[in-house]
Design a protein around this nucleic acid. Sequence first.
DNA 1: CGTATTTGACCGGCGC
DNA 2: GCGCCGGTCAAATACG
Length: 624
Amino acid sequence: MDMEAAYGGNSVKKEDQEKKAESIGDEDCCTEEVLHKVGNGRRAQDDKINQSSPNRKDFTSSIQGSFMPNMEMSSSEFNSNVSSSALAGRADLLKSTKAEMGEVMEENQKLRMHLDRVMKEYRALQMQFHDMVQQEPNKSSSTISTHRETGEPELVSLSLGMSSSDGKKDDYFSRKTHGKEKVDNDADDKEVLALGLDCKFELPKYQENEPSPTPSLEASSGEVKEEEGGKTWPPKNSLKNVRNEEDEVSQQTSVKRARVSVRVRCDTPTMNDGCQWRKYGQKTAKGNPCPRAYYRCTVAPNCPVRKQVQRYAEDMSILTTTYEGTHNHPLPISATAMASTTSAAASMLISGSTTSTSGLSPSVASILSSASFNGLNFYLSDNTKPTPIYLPNSSLSSSSSCPTITLDLTTSSNASSHPSKLGSFPPRSYSTIQNLNFSSLESNALPLSWSNGVLGYGTQAQPYNKNQNIGSLNFGRQLQEAHYQSYLQKNNSISNSSTQQSLPAETLAAATKAITSDPSFQSALAAALTSIIGPGTSSTARVVGSQTAADESGHNLKLIDQSFPILSSFPPSTSTVNKCASTFLSSSNPPSSANSQPGSLMFLSPSLSFPTPNNNSTSNVRLH
DNA sequence: CGTATTTGACCGGCGC
DNA sequence: GCGCCGGTCAAATACG
């Protein structure tokens, strides 16, 4: 299976397929095992024969020679091959050998039958798998077409925007017909807008359309297109695009300006999100005495991605990082966590309405509520008119022109207040432990480097890593898995029991419903969870199809009120400002334990797939 | 010396 | 049209 990741609705389906494929793989293993057994059987038989006539190498070899090639030789043929004079004195031995031969052949027949049966089963499963694979693209395409009709962004894509580059450009162009740059750029046309997080959740179909190796997502589609001159933030447009689908234009207008803001506690100037940034400006924004720093991605020369970093005036330890744009290059593995998180958020933003809270998908709202309940708060901020929606422990608002989703990683769900606007957050209770620890990198550095491209992404990331040497996300996979194992053990009883200790039934039900009803959110959640839990964890959990994503009791979706034992330390960046590492720590993890949050969000669902980097399973998840 | 950061100037959007 | 504001540029500066 393609290593390219598939999150989201698409990913769900793909992971479902993957599950089946894995089961087939298991079957394959069984087949191989049978074959192995057969081989062993043959070897055992050979040994048997050898033992029966240890002194007769020629005889033994004769038997083997006749036996091994096709085992079809009859005993009469066998007899003809053996000199009767040479064996005259050992007729009894020959008899016994022939008897053994009969037994061996009989056993061999049984093994053959067994093997045939297994092979049949394997082929049947394989056929089923192929059928599934063939059916899924159809479903996906239908879904896409549906969304295109409605002008909504691609369902399965976690990109902030764009289902197609055309639409996005149209939008931008329509709004800025006199934009500074209108240079036609074929390459640009092909570029996919995605929230720069370079998460490839597009369907293969779209990938075909976008040959670019890094058709990243662009949160603000188009808006961040930078030409070689570096000044073409406005995407160049092709007039033909302008003419196309005005409804898409209207729809994508909001998409194109989408931003993802991440609020974390960080004592360092910026949090290390795995990317390399260069500061190009600083400004003191109105309403916040703390200067806002502007960074530009320097991983690739023309990467249009920008980020703004600003501290919360009332709590200097809180750092808000706003991402905008799409990476046009492979992301280092270390950047994938944040990337997928923000992508997921962006996807939520997109899947929800862009104009009003009422437009938000109920499923999204419910899941946001659920997520917020567990400590991960999402905010959709309207920069122009902050009218947050009050969900349990979270607020949602949307913007018509520049929607921003805020991932509040600083507070628990117990926070009573909520932010209304980026850059000027109202005071809120940050007293509780943070969910994600973006504490100092140094303190969390792990000895285990996970930089060998174990992820599918790795192949893309490697070129970058080679140069930057920062592509190693020190997830500390072994340690991580160890934690996960212990975690599973620790919570095994909980998981197996009918009661969800930490999750209210209604919350679970809402989340389950959301998962099952909103493919878009499935993708978003998958990405978010993957980013949080990390790709290095056990692959036992996986996303199943929407039909089976959660059973009625919600057993397949578990919100566990305990931090998942994940360590993801980012290696030091060359940038001096990148001092914070986005580290997801469990309460059991000593480093920065003060920041760990027992009540942090933990979506741990057996239905969510978190492929192990090194497993032989066909991972379809690419973290970026 | 090369690279990154700083910082004042500049530009465009938006509201009045 | 004017001023405010956010965002960006680019020369100057700092740093390794």
